[in-house]
Write a protein that binds this DNA or RNA. Structure first.
Lengths: 264, 264
DNA sequence: CGTAGTGTTGAATTGAATCAAGTGTCGTGG
DNA sequence: CCACGACACTTGATTCAATTCAACACTACG
């Protein structure tokens, strides 16, 4: 019966009008186009250029390196590599992870378009984790020493980068709270709602999206096992709060998902 | 027997040559002196002035406000207050916490001398948590808008503040890993070792110190209950890795404590 | 001196992990 | 294009680490 349900959901999803993203990139732009400038980038309100004027954006453009696209599984950098750059996701998605002493990894973050990767390396001058592409993805590399130089010239860039780092700190502390006092179901609901609002930020559907990561990635991120994540998903589906079919997720009742989190 | 042991430990601790800090302040400076300058502050290598030259330190000094001392339980700021300043702990200690929906709080951070409080408010312009003094404490208040202005004039200050924020991000991600995959004993050992090295940074004993926070605070921070923290403490004491007497902690075998963490 | 807050310990319970056995899905090469 | 193998996911039964509930001891402070 569970299986029949899942099949059914595929039909529904594929028949629907709103297309699911193939990867998390707004439609207008070729997702992996390397020739786009900061000024014309669809993400510019999320990434660094926000609050910069035209000539300032041009200056930023000068220091940004638009690398070749990354294939699924390609490393952006590895733990203990010398810190050189931060990266802005242009399309696709990435995960950061650390290898614990017993060899198995734990996921520390996921990154969607417009988000900044690599800030954990700023202080120690080495990356504290490894980061790999979860799907075919493209990024903008921003050499940090040049970003610092430019920030010194452009107060609004300095201000914005302080804000980006402050946001990262606030987000990390939310996750601290999530992990230290929420149940498996609460964590999972919160994770889904978090993804939802991040997709909304890049003008994608907040209620229907593809998970770029495995159940195992989600489990490592939330401090749960794969099995638990899977059980919670089926449980939420049984309650008709979400519709799951493999990586395809539909949030059927966002208010009820929010209610789960605040019920502890 | 447990009780007899605890009594005994007090004797030992009090008889030892290295004095325990009354609060976490290096001895040379009156712990709550408001008239000290950044240039003469014993913590200056940890706090902002590092890497600034004399005249730069003087400029920083100008914007720092040295408030009256805070009593135990005094709020530095409350959740949702408008963000105005970051704060450097001069003496004593603080904790940040958020109130969850059910009313009970969760501790998100502890702050010891030389550490910077309030960076979670930079992005949203509101503090994301409340912060209170755990003991009689003093701080330097640094109005953030002025810090930004000065950072713009002093590249080394900008660089250092980026590093401070990067360090906070890296630290928060370590805690994420700790909470998502370590056992109660591993978390507790890691917490004690973390405190140890932070005390070492301010020239206090890394092996003997007073806990400024309650067991309950530790539990909330580590995602454990008070009872579990208490049991782990007695367990570690039974294994002769630590000696506990109320808030007084002695780390008897730091290597073995490290081994606990890497054994998962 | 009494009381509220802090800490310890024990017994019972439980949420999530572990162990185990599958099915489903996708990419690759024959 | 299909078959194969590797990986991803699901579901069930059992176990266990940590929580919960409960009772009590210690401490510190007005």
């Amino acid at each position: 019966m569970g299986s029949a349900n899942l099949r059914g959901s595929t039909q529904t999803a594929e028949g629907s009008k709103i297309p699911l993203q193939q990867n998390a990139t707004p439609a207008k732009v070729c997702p992996h186009n390397s020739n786009i400038s900061c000024a014309s980038c669809r993400l510019n309100e999320l990434c660094l250029p926000i609050a910069l004027n035209k000539s300032e954006i041009h200056q930023l453009d000068e220091i940004v390196e638009r690398n070749r696209p990354y294939k699924k599984g390609d490393h952006l950098y590895r733990q203990s590599d010398d810190f050189k750059s931060v990266y802005a996701v242009r399309s696709g998605s990435f995960k950061s992870y650390v290898l614990s002493d017993n060899g198995q990894g734990r996921v520390t973050s996921f990154f969607l378009p417009g988000e900044i990767i690599g800030m954990d390396g700023i202080a120690s001058k080495q990356y504290a984790n490894s980061t790999i592409a979860l799907e075919h993805s493209s990024i903008c590399e921003i050499p940090f020493s040049q970003l610092e130089k430019l920030s010194h010239q452009l107060p609004s860039l300095q201000h914005h980068f302080f804000a980006i780092m402050g946001n990262e700190i606030a987000k990390d502390q939310q996750i601290h709270t999530l992990l230290s006092s929420y149940t498996a179901e609460e964590r999972t609901a919160s994770f889904l709602l978090g993804l939802s609002s991040r997709y909304a930020h890049v003008s994608l559907s907040p209620s229907r999206f593809l998970l770029p990561m495995t159940r195992s990635d989600i489990g490592e991120y939330l401090g749960l096992t794969v099995e638990t994540v899977s059980r919670i998903f089926t449980g939420l589906q049984r309650k008709e709060l979400i519709q799951v079919n493999n990586r395809e997720i539909e949030l059927l009742d966002i208010a009820a998902l929010r209610a789960i989190i605040s019920s502890s």
